[in-house]
Structures are given as structure tokens and as C-alpha cells.
Design a binder for these strands. Structure first.
Lengths: 239, 239
DNA sequence: ATGGGATATATCCTATAGGATATTGTCGAC
DNA sequence: GTCGACAATATCCTATAGGATATATCCCAT
């Protein structure tokens, strides 16, 4: 009864549009650099223009789409190499600290659920087949694990900062090699174990190592993809 | 000539609404917790509802306003003591690093302009009178200085993170004591000097010290204001 | 063949109207 | 005097139409 104060929190159309668009961008159903037509999206999603516009504004503030005043929206292009390095520099700054704090948090927060959640999220989903779907599941699971560690840090601002960084990495996740999934799971489990056993320094080091490995795993695929798309140039010329 | 490719970048109504609303929130013309009526704002600002809605969505993503699905927007309430400490913890993590990196950046970026800008921004504006306006100018100058140091770090993501944090601090800036303005200027100048003279460690330490002092300056005013408003309670009852 | 200019199209931006919902105030009963 | 329910109001949410602008196509001149 007293819970009714928070309201039903019924998701409105703008939230639906936001979730749908974000999901499509994260799974690269909307390619980087692709132009986004407002009423085109409105007709495709069968939603009016105003909610679409609202969702787009939110996504722009998050950095997932860019806007040019009288020209329209487009999906944020792929990160340059400098931006890529910058991103991982920030992760190295934030995430080991989050892991460290998560490890020496008050024990009242360390009930059984936390350990279970951590172990569950550290595992990558079963991937008998290397289909595109399972690879998508993997990227989702990876994101959730890192976000959960952020939440466990006890610092809401730190958690939100980590979440934002993860959102910027979405495009490059799809280039992950299938074999690296197992490596990722091992590293995640090492981090989880250190947190559960409350060893702050070990947790921080495990996270730092994981990030370094993740960086090099992405970097190879990153350079490869850059060779395909072309080195940071728009392709609008017709020969 | 070739610059015409970037477009005129003419600000549209949504940008105007965004800037105006953000400005009013930052100067507390819109009080924390105050309810924001969409068409009320539309009539006040003489702008249609759609741009207002768009600006509000962007501000929500930035954390300056909160939204409840079928209930409307309201200005983000004052930070609790925990959130306040969390905020300064993040600043201590990010800003000294930014100062350090700014100090040992490539010298091609260290032309005369940077030194001049730094010295200019470090200074607080002349405040012969302690009027509300000059106090507002001070908060703006302080924000600009910290943001500029963030930009000088050479890491766009670090700069943006610092900018976001500053936006969250807006509400408490208005409680600054007039006498602390001079102290702030001295500390800013020390940071600027260390960066100009390219002494990374000194710059980082100066920034860290400045943040610690700033934290205690805010904290005293923070607790005082909390005593006035009441300890974290809405005041909607009529006796 | 290439460059410049004008027209045509598509898209965005803005404004207004109607339907649905939460909130507020009032009334009555216990 | 307090609690609960009901009705009226205000507000938000959604949809559609018209005006303004950038982009693309086509044509002509050089």
C-alpha cells in the first residue's frame, strides 16, 4: 500500500522507442554513421514522431548518436584509434578501483545473493554454436558483469561513469573473436572470486589485467576492421 | 571557404530552450525539487511544447532533472551528504590526474594562448560588491577553470566526465561564502602556475589540495543549508 | 568534360488539438 | 476528528498538419 507512492512506473512510448533504438544500435542493426530519419523511424517502429524525437535527444546526450542542427541525426561513427585508447585509459582508471571497493565493502551488503549474482554474471552464456545471436548474448553478459561490479563499489557516480563508458564501447564488441570468450570468462571468474573472498588488491589487479587483455583482444580486431572500412574516411564518392 | 562544410550550426529552438533551462537551474532560478510543467514552461519561454520536451529529455540524461512517467518533470533535489561525499571522491580521482596530464602535455599545445587562458580563467571576476550577480559570476568562472583544465588533459573522455561532475555540483555552489572567493583564486593560480611551468606532480598536488579545501568550504555551508531546509524532507504541509 | 546555378524533393522543425491519466479538493461516513 | 471514496481539474502524452530549410538532381554555359 505504501509502495504505491512510487507509482506504477509504466513505461511510456518514449521509453519504448529509446530502448528499441538503443538495442538496435548496440547490436549494430543500425550501422555506425548511418543516417537516422525521424519520420522514417516513426513509421518503422509504428510510433509517432514526438517520442522518437525524445528518445533521440536522450541518446544524443549519451553520445550514441550525433545531431547536426538542420540536417538530422546519425549513429555515432566508430571510435578512432586515439579515442579507443582514451576509452581504455579511463576504464583502467575507474574499473580496478570499483573492483577494489567492491571487495572491501560492508559485509551486510555481502549476503549470499551478491556472491551468487557475481558468479552467475561472470559466466558467459552457453555458446554451443557461434551464431550471431550467441555472440550478442556474450556482449550483453560482459556489459552486465562490469556494470554489476560498478554497482557493488558503493559509489553511484562511479557506477554511472562505468556504465557510460561501456555504452561507448558497444560498436567494437561485435568484433570479438569467438575463442576469446573463454578467456574472458576465466578472467571474470578470477575477479568475482577475489571480490567474494574480499581481497581488494587482488580484485583490482585481476580487473586491471582483464582490461589490458581485453584491450589487446579488441585492438587486433579493431585494426583489422579499420583496414576493411578504410582508415577514417567517409565513403561518399562514386568512381 | 572550406569551413562551410561544417554548416552554419545555427542554434535551433530546442537548443535555446536547453540553454535557458540549464542556466536557470544552475543559477537556482528554478529551485531544487521544483515541479516543471511542460506547457507552463512553453508559455513562459514563448516556445512550443516539443522543443521544451526535447530539452527536458536531454537534461534528464544529464541528471539535472528527474522524470516520473505519468507525473512530469522536476528539478533534481539537493544532494544528500552521501552523494556529496561521493561526488568529491570522484573529483579527487579525476581532476588531479587531469592537472597532471595537462602539465606534461606536448609543448606544441603549450603556446602562449594556453598560459594566458589559464591565468585569465584562474582569476575570479572583480567582486567589489557581494551582490548575487557577482557571486553567480564566480561560480561560472570556477566551473570554466576546472573544465579548461580537463580539456588541457588531452583526454576528451576525462574532460567530459569532469564536466558532468561539475554540472551536478551546481546547487551547492550558491552557498559559498564570499570570503572563500579569494582563497579559491589563490588555489586556482597555484594550479595554473604549476601547469604553465610544466610540473606535473606539483599540479596534481595543488589540485588535490584545492579540492579538499573546496570540499570543506562547501561542507560547512552544506550542513548549514540542510538545517534550514530541514533534514531531507519535503515541505508541503500547511499548518 | 567540368563547374556553377536553379529548381525540385525530402526532411526537419514548429505549432496545435484531442484523448488518457495522475493529482487535488471536497464530501460523507464512522 | 479522521479515514475513505468520489468527482473535477490540471497536466501529460500522442497524433497530425503546415512552414522552413538543407540536400540532391538536372540543366546550361564555358
Amino acid at each position: 500500500m505504501g509502495e504505491a507512492l512510487v507509482g506504477p512506473e509504466r513505461p511510456i512510448l518514449a521509453d519504448k522507442a529509446y530502448t528499441e533504438l538503443k538495442s538496435r544500435i548496440l547490436r549494430s542493426a543500425l550501422a555506425p554513421g548511418e543516417k537516422l530519419s525521424i519520420d522514417g523511424l516513426a513509421k518503422r517502429l509504428e510510433i509517432s514522431q514526438t517520442p522518437i524525437r525524445e528518445a533521440l535527444a536522450r541518446l544524443e546526450a549519451e553520445g550514441l548518436v550525433r545531431r547536426r542542427p538542420l540536417s538530422g541525426y546519425k549513429v555515432t561513427p566508430l571510435l578512432t584509434e586515439d579515442e579507443f585508447e582514451d576509452l581504455f585509459g579511463m576504464r583502467q582508471l575507474l574499473e580496478p578501483l570499483a573492483a577494489k571497493r567492491a571487495a572491501d565493502l560492508d559485509e551486510n551488503l555481502h549476503d549470499g545473493n551478491v556472491a551468487n549474482n557475481l558468479r552467475m554474471l561472470a559466466r558467459t552464456p552457453d555458446f554451443d554454436s557461434d551464431a550471431a545471436l550467441s555472440r550478442l548474448d556474450f556482449t550483453e553478459a560482459d556489459k552486465r558483469f562490469h556494470n554489476y561490479v560498478g554497482q557493488l563499489s558503493g559509489s553511484p557516480m562511479l557506477a554511472k561513469a562505468i556504465d557510460r563508458l561501456d555504452a561507448h564501447l558497444h560498436l567494437h564488441r561485435s568484433y570479438i573473436e569467438p575463442k576469446s570468450i573463454a578467456e574472458t570468462e576465466r578472467e571474470h571468474l578470477a575477479i568475482a572470486a577475489a571480490i567474494i573472498e574480499r581481497q581488494p588488491l587482488t580484485a583490482a589487479e585481476a580487473m586491471s589485467l582483464h582490461l589490458e587483455n581485453s584491450r589487446s583482444r579488441h585492438a587486433t580486431a579493431f585494426l583489422r576492421s579499420e583496414a576493411v572500412v578504410g582508415p577514417r574516411k567517409e565513403v561518399n564518392r562514386t568512381p
